[in-house]
Design a protein around this nucleic acid. Structure first.
Lengths: 252, 252
DNA sequence: TGTTTCCCTTGATTAAAATCAACACTATTG
DNA sequence: CAATAGTGTTGATTTTAATCAAGGGAAACA
């Protein structure tokens, strides 16, 4: 899919749509932050061959649900996904937000069944990576095997980071840490580290950080008053990055 | 190392010491719950060949420290290990307890440096599995590769379980869930599911569950009064398993 | 384009666990 | 064996965030 646009100066240009599902790993602008990161040349092509791209998910559409048979892991190409579990008493625990270039679904490997559900927070496109193919390819490409081990290990350390946050930090610190995390993940993709639109609701933020909506809202108000953030609905501007790091209780 | 014992009836017997470091995977009584689980015959031998066994760790001795160069993952053979991180402001976050047959150190893969520290809670023996050898072996043995992916994935789902516990559950529920977890891990190793000695202190429990020592102590007192547990220092007896599951807010 | 639903904010009150404090018990060590 | 550091328990008070309550605003949709 390509769409015809007219440039500012009126000339016709051809741009790939952000949700384009005909791209391949070699020309994907995320290949420096995504799975191909560890590979080069022909190896990328081989990885590309096992990857399936389908039409974009609409907002709130599920990619998979808790308990579904596990078959693939997924790389986010555009949009944002959230992963969550539903507790026995019906409440929702958000276990992660996934931005372009990030991999989700790895929690399904252990039991051959997804341990969490994944839904799109906005229109999103994903690359599906069938796990059995990935396993075979990993056996043949040491770099890929290594990289995938590293990706899973990264997920472990990030979860442990969240555990520490939930266990030891105040509401202010939790929200601050999330804002900084989103900021740095934006920077990784060459987007602004100081201005962005939150793809998730306050409820989602609360369910991720172990806080109620009301508390999240109050923290934003407080940070706004302190001139650390400018908050306008989902638009966030970080006015005082070092003050924010301070508030998040992270070394500056 | 083998030690000579006299049996109850007075006859001399030969038993391997629990901290014995001359055992190999084939005759290790943990091989049905540990890494070799996925392997058979000659493959176990090959795994065995890369594993290094060294002399037991004494109580409170470190296996590795946060920031150490990552080289190996470890399987607990006897005793109990705890993994923990130190927060910027010097507090300790326990990220896991590891019983015999369980693997620790996988959080070091992502950065080639350990993301947490590991120390022995009591005299403990571990098997060291050099990661580069494990990688090579994994490339050649699909079952091993698969099993290791599954182990990492299991660590992810367990961390997410803890995230949910910290985020959504009360002090009673958290302590209850930990008691049930220890109980079922004991059962897996053919030990009593209802009577055991806690290898960790109340402080460790608090640091794992995001609670203070005082709160942990009060929860134990409460459960004792309700005749759900019998608590005598570190000795625990589960008197009412279904009441405990109830208290932990898990389906019964 | 109106209307309904969801989302967000703010205020008042309550509940749960942290903190502060004191003391008993255990285990370690000189 | 006494001294002491560490570990665990219990009580009183404080703090933080949850809960309850209400209303405003955005956005989805019919």
């Amino acid at each position: 899919m390509t769409i015809h646009l007219t440039d500012a100066d009126g000339s016709a240009v051809l741009k790939p749509c952000v949700h384009d599902y005909q791209v391949n790993c070699s020309n994907c602008r995320l290949n420096s932050v995504c799975l191909p990161l560890a590979l080069e040349g022909d190896d990328i092509q081989q990885l590309d061959d096992i990857i399936q791209r389908s039409k974009p998910l609409q907002k709130s559409q599920h990619l998979y649900r808790e308990g579904d048979h596990f078959q693939s892991v997924y790389a986010v190409r555009s949009g944002t996904m959230k992963a969550y579990k539903t507790t026995d008493d019906g409440r929702e625990q958000v276990t992660g937000f996934f931005f372009p270039g990030e991999i989700l679904g790895m929690d399904g490997i252990s039991n051959n069944s997804h341990a969490s559900s994944a839904k799109a927070l906005e229109t999103a496109a994903v690359c599906e990576i069938p796990f059995s193919s990935l396993e075979k390819l990993s056996s043949m490409m040491p770099n890929l095997q290594r990289h995938f081990f590293q990706l899973m290990s990264r997920e472990i350390t990030e979860d442990q980071q969240l555990i520490t946050l939930l266990s030891k930090n105040s509401a202010d610190e939790r929200v601050g840490a999330l804002m900084l995390s989103i900021s740095s993940r934006n920077a990784r993709r060459q987007l602004s580290a100081t201005q962005f639109r939150l793809p998730m609701s306050r409820v989602d933020i609360g369910n991720y950080l172990g806080l109620t909506v009301e508390t999240v809202s109050r923290v934003f108000s407080r940070m706004q008053k302190m001139e650390i953030l400018r908050v306008e609905n989902k638009e966030i501007e970080i006015l005082d990055p070092s003050g924010l790091k301070n508030m998040a209780n992270l070394r500056n």
